[in-house]
């Protein structure tokens, strides 16, 4: 017993002796590997595993099917990984589009004078005044659902907060001396924006992308779960979970548990990466 304890203690020791930064770096590596595995799995696993296989219906978790199978005999692990990969794709596209909108509006608000600034701040308020999910449903409804509706909806609903951040950042930079000098030298707005402002805002954009992504992917899952997002023929976590609802009372718990848990892990992973990037950029938090 005591020798066991010693062993456990011994094996934990190296991890504990790392300091905060090393530990957070390790977490980052592990999390990135996890995400890589998910995406690779989603891309590489063959579609045969999610073809209807009535001989293997409703199986609980096993070595051959770690996440079990559904009522059509499809492998739930493959469905989950493919669903997650699709979600990551949709989420990243939408988040990237949102970041682009935020960049353009934030820079415009900070550099084009008071009128433009107040119009953009009004727009930000406008998009914050309708509940996110309701706005998503509205846009999805307008575009007739499907991937297009989801991506556009997500892109159009996630930019406001980042726009404020970028506006504030650019405002601060604009009064910086070297930008003033550049202005006096008669450089064009485009030149100043590209040469002086953008390089400073770029890291913020990167952080913004990673922090917007979890919201985007969760909203994608939600709108798909509701039935107004991705189509039932696409492998999507929202679809899988919505289907699982129908089998709740049959005690096929694996249909809901594993896909949901996987989604949670993926979202949290992106969150961790985003937080890490932010603390690296923000000197106030650098010593945490």
């Amino acid at each position: 017993m005591s020798s066991m304890m010693k062993m456990v203690k011994f094996s934990i020791q190296p991890f504990i002796s790392l300091n905060g930064r090393q530990r957070s770096f390790m977490t980052l590596v592990i999390v990135s590997l996890l995400l890589l595995c998910v995406i690779l799995g989603g891309l590489v696993l063959s579609n045969e595993r999610i073809a209807t296989d009535l001989g293997n219906r409703n199986l609980g978790p096993s070595l051959a099917h770690p996440f079990g199978t559904d009522w059509l005999g499809r492998d739930m692990l493959t469905r989950t990984l493919k669903g997650l990969t699709l979600s990551i794709g949709v989420g990243l596209t939408a988040a990237a589009a949102s970041v682009t909108i935020a960049l353009i509006l934030g820079m415009l608000a900070a550099t084009m004078g008071k009128v433009v600034d107040s119009i953009i701040s009004w727009l930000v308020d406008l998009f914050l005044s309708v509940p996110h999910l309701v706005m998503l449903m509205l846009i999805s409804f307008a575009l007739g659902g499907g991937i297009k509706g989801v991506v556009i909806g997500l892109a159009l609903t996630h930019w406001p907060s980042l726009t404020r951040v970028i506006r504030a950042e650019v405002m601060q930079l604009r009064s910086a001396e070297y930008v003033e000098v550049s202005k006096r030298l008669g450089k064009s707005r485009w030149f100043i924006g590209r040469k002086h402002l953008f390089p400073h805002v770029a890291p913020q954009l990167m952080v913004g992308l990673f922090l917007l992504f979890p919201h985007a992917i969760l909203h994608e899952a939600a709108i798909t779960f509701i039935g107004m997002g991705l189509s039932p023929h696409q492998p999507a976590i929202g679809i899988i979970l919505s289907e699982s609802m129908r089998y709740l009372s049959t005690e096929m718990w694996w249909l809901a548990i594993f896909p949901g848990l996987s989604l949670l892990l993926v979202v949290r992973s992106f969150d961790i990466i985003g937080e890490h990037l932010r603390s690296r950029l923000d000197p106030h938090r650098a010593h945490d």
């Binding site: 300091n19 905060g20 930064r21 090393q22 770096f25 650098a286 010593h287």
Partner: peptide
């Protein structure tokens, strides 16, 4: 204690 560049602190 304060972190310096990288993983060291001083």
């Amino acid at each position: 204690k304060q972190y310096t560049k990288g993983f060291k602190h001083k």
